[in-house]
Design a protein around this nucleic acid. Structure first.
Lengths: 154, 154
DNA sequence: TTGCTCCTCACGTCACGTGAGGTGGC
DNA sequence: TTGCTCCTCACGTCACGTGAGGTGGC
């Protein structure tokens, strides 16, 4: 879970994974029957926090998740087994997407270094491959430790 | 659908998307009731070819798809709405995965060119950035048209 | 005729949602 | 006491699978 923060007026700071809603409130926010929320928990689809007395406490993220389940079951007509599987696949997509973004950032950095180095060599009229930091060239042998994807962007 | 080919002994060449099985055979291969196959078609989950007389003809790919549906419904307990959604997400994953592979291949190509060019400059003792093809350097201004992701590969 | 195909209709089963019913602590 | 919480049990509904029943062409 993320730890994004949100300020409500100037008084209270609430992280979105903090349990704040009791079941009746969470159910209303998600437009579900409270009993349905208990059922989803029994199925392992949602895991609200508990107060010391045992009362379920749902977070913003929990409510968001409930709404996503609601969309899949009510609008698409999916059953809970399908919802579970979709959550798994979405995690995969998320992970892959993040890898791709990280790769693109890293590549842009390297590309800039290479460009800078070529520019330097052009200027100096002499090709030296001494380490040059920061922002220097990576020695060719180390380069082999990278796989460098390129994406023609527009 | 792919157009992979398979040779059976030396006589017949069958593409995997060619309709070859009538419904009773396809149903047996997929371990399903024939009526279930008709139902899936009505739901748009599968689209077998038809003979001129109207008889359904299922391909290898169709049977494979039926087996995947069977796994999702029988083993995971998913309903058909969930199966549809999972197919969509898997298409997305597939596409993203292909993009990633293509990007990595393209990057490796560029990396090799850059390395070769650096080597050339080092050897000639002089930095020239004249176009040098094939396998030559991309002029810096054109380079900006690329986004070059890097992935630290083990 | 037999065994397949096509189709539609109907029924049994099961998952899911929800209500009831009884408990306990602010 | 009221209104919430907790829990379990049970019922209604609906999707799905499958069987029946009737047709038609190798």
């Amino acid at each position: 879970m993320a730890t994004r923060r949100r300020r409500t007026s100037t008084r209270i700071e609430v992280t979105e994974d903090r349990g704040v809603f009791m079941i009746s409130v969470a159910a209303e926010l998600a437009e579900m029957h409270p009993q349905t929320l208990r059922m989803y928990e029994a199925r392992g689809l949602i895991s609200p926090k508990r107060s010391p007395k045992g009362t379920r406490l749902y977070s913003q993220d929990d409510v968001e998740r409930l709404r996503r389940i609601q969309a899949m079951t009510a609008e698409l007509g999916m059953n809970l087994a399908g919802v579970e599987r979709v959550f798994e696949l979405e995690r995969q997509l998320e992970r892959m997407s993040r890898r791709m973004e990280a790769a693109e950032r890293e590549a842009e950095r390297l590309r800039a270094h290479m460009e800078a180095e070529l520019e330097r060599m052009r200027r100096e009229g002499r090709a030296e491959l001494v380490p040059y930091r920061p922002g220097g060239l990576v020695p060719a042998k180390d380069l082999k430790r990278f796989r460098i994807p390129i994406d023609r962007a527009g």
